[in-house]
Amino acid sequence: MDSSTINSLFSEAIVSVAGLTDYIQELLEEDNQLHRVWVIGEVSSSNHHPKGMFFTLQDPDAKATIQCVAWRSQLSKLVQLPEVGEQLIILGSLRVYPQRGQYQLNVWQALPAGEGLQALRSRQLRQRFEAEGLFDPQRKRPLPIHPETIAVVTSPQAAAWGDIKRTLQQRYPGLRVLFSPAQVQGELAIASIVNAIDRVERDGRAKLLILARGGGASEDLACFNDERVVRAIAQCSIPVITGIGHQRDESLADLVADYSAHTPTAAAEQAVPELITLYAEHQQRRTTLYQAVTQITEASCHKLHHLRTRLRHLALDQQLHQEQNAIAFQHQR
């Protein structure tokens, strides 16, 4: 079937991307109910920007989110500034952005509605883990200094996997790296991560495990705050390093891990020493040892020379004493 036939069959049904987006924009922005809408939800992430504050409002039970923006001119008028974990009642209007194919809520007012459900659940879970001692520094195991085999749990499509592989190869050539793939975002991520850790355990070759993913919105990192993932890390028979998100992110998985790094690359750097550094340290030890041996040898030679001189003087003294005795004996005769 050629293109002219297709066009003749679907000419009335085909619409361009711009045409479809314009239609959606007209439906949403011309709806009187959406000109002034009240929305209640929990702030799951926020980002301060010179133009204003961008944040995400979520409904934890329905697993729905909406992007919001409070422009700089409006911030001072808000009763409550958006903070992660707080539940807010938002007044705003819906706007469509055709270039990104997205819609967001332009915020006019924000009223406090107490602590959010997701934040409350996370706080209670954290308190339970603390009571069990899962975050105690005493239970954290030392990392192996020269691991021969390391396992990595992350998504095969994630940039984190490439960063970790490259860093490990550069720092410690010859290292055996076992990859246990897992989804690190979405509804299936929790079971996938737990299964990936269990896969490493059953394999039995790895001496260290890295659990990693790149940064993202707080709702994207929710699986690392789940009880099943946290307990899988705590019960793992080998030390675990986490490299989750960016420096601003901290999950319950980070708290229970034996070592927590701010990024996947930093986790890989912590997992193995740098071969160049090891070589430089070895050369420094050789130099220090050579200097110590040389110093001891020179000191011993000096001492030996001193003892030889004393021996020569002692032999001369004995000879003089014998001559004196002989002369005295002659005089007595």
Rank of each mutant, 00 (worst) to 15 (best):
N32Y: 15
L81H: 05
H262F: 13
A196I: 11
R171Q: 01
G19P: 03
F224W: 02
T294L: 15
D203E: 09
E132V: 13
G133V: 08
L316G: 15
S260F: 02
I197D: 03
I90N: 06
H246A: 03
D226M: 08
T56V: 15
G101F: 00
L34G: 06
D61G: 09
V17A: 06
V256F: 08
G243I: 02
I241K: 07
P112H: 00
E86T: 14
Q247H: 12
G243C: 12
F10Y: 07
T65A: 14
Q74Y: 00
K303C: 14
E132A: 13
R231W: 10
H305M: 14
S251W: 00
W108R: 11
N47E: 02
V240E: 02
I233N: 01
P147T: 04
V256R: 06
R95F: 00
I276T: 15
V240Y: 04
L105G: 07
C236I: 06
M53A: 08
D59T: 13
R199P: 08
I14K: 01
L278G: 10
D198H: 12
G92H: 03
A189F: 06
R308V: 15
D258L: 03
L316M: 15
R126D: 13
L168V: 05
E187T: 02
G204M: 10
K207H: 11
Q124H: 10
H146A: 15
E86F: 15
A292K: 12
W38S: 15
I164S: 04
P173G: 05
Q104Y: 03
Q25I: 07
Q25Y: 00
V240W: 06
A234V: 12
A271W: 07
Q247I: 12
T297Y: 00
T167W: 01
S260Q: 02
R72A: 11
E201G: 11
A292V: 04
V240G: 10
D317L: 14
L78R: 04
R228A: 12
I40P: 00
L188Q: 15
D220P: 01
L178N: 05
S11P: 03
H246N: 00
P147G: 08
V272K: 00
R285A: 13
I90Q: 05
P60Q: 01
T287Y: 13
G186T: 01
C236F: 03
H306C: 02
Q247S: 12
G243E: 10
A326E: 08
N195L: 13
L94G: 06
Q99F: 06
Y172T: 13
L175C: 08
L304S: 13
P82N: 03
R72W: 09
G186H: 00
L175W: 01
E298A: 15
P156N: 08
A267Q: 04
H49D: 11
Q127W: 05
L57E: 06
L311C: 06
R128P: 06
A119K: 02
P60A: 01
Q25F: 05
L20Q: 01
L208E: 04
A110R: 01
R286N: 14
